[in-house]
Every structure is written in structure tokens, then in C-alpha cells.
Deep mutational scan, measured.
Amino acid sequence: TETYETTDETEARKIAEELKRRGLTFRIERHGTTIRIESD
């Protein structure tokens, strides 16, 4: 499991693209301005 936290929408998108490219599944949670991406 890898966890990323960012407040930057663009960075979050880049992380999501990278995880997809590596064939990982992940979920995105939003907590206020923080975007949390957690891979399975």
C-alpha cells in the first residue's frame, strides 16, 4: 500500500496516472483541501 497526500489537484492527477500506468488500483479520498490517494 502506498499513500500520497497533496493539496494540489494537478499533482493528484499525476499520481493517479502513474499508479494506473503501473497497473495498480487505488482510491481517492478528499478531506477538505487535502486529496489522499491510497493504492491497494
Rank of each mutant, 00 (worst) to 15 (best):
T1M: 11
T1P: 12
E2C: 15
E2R: 13
E2G: 08
E2I: 14
E2M: 14
E2F: 15
T3K: 09
T3C: 14
T3Y: 14
Y4V: 03
E5L: 11
E5R: 04
T6V: 10
T6E: 02
T7I: 06
T7P: 03
T7Q: 11
D8M: 04
E9D: 06
E9R: 06
E9C: 14
T10W: 12
T10H: 12
T10P: 04
E11V: 12
A12C: 14
A12D: 01
A12G: 03
A12H: 01
A12W: 04
A12M: 06
R13F: 11
R13V: 09
K14H: 09
K14Q: 12
I15T: 02
I15P: 00
I15Y: 10
A16W: 09
A16I: 15
A16N: 00
A16T: 13
E17M: 12
E17K: 10
E17F: 11
E18Y: 13
E18D: 12
E18N: 11
E18K: 07
E18C: 15
E18R: 09
L19G: 01
L19K: 01
L19D: 00
K20V: 10
K20S: 10
R21F: 06
R21D: 04
R22M: 05
R22K: 06
R22I: 03
R22F: 03
L24H: 07
T25I: 09
T25Q: 10
T25V: 08
F26R: 02
F26L: 05
F26Y: 10
R27C: 15
R27H: 10
I28A: 02
E29S: 15
E29P: 00
R30V: 13
R30Q: 08
H31N: 12
H31E: 09
H31V: 13
H31T: 10
H31S: 08
H31D: 11
G32E: 04
G32M: 03
T33N: 13
T33W: 07
T34A: 05
T34W: 10
T34S: 06
T34G: 04
I35K: 00
I35Q: 00
I35E: 01
I35A: 00
R36Q: 03
I37N: 01
I37R: 01
E38S: 14
S39T: 15
S39Q: 07
D40P: 15
D40Q: 13
D40V: 14
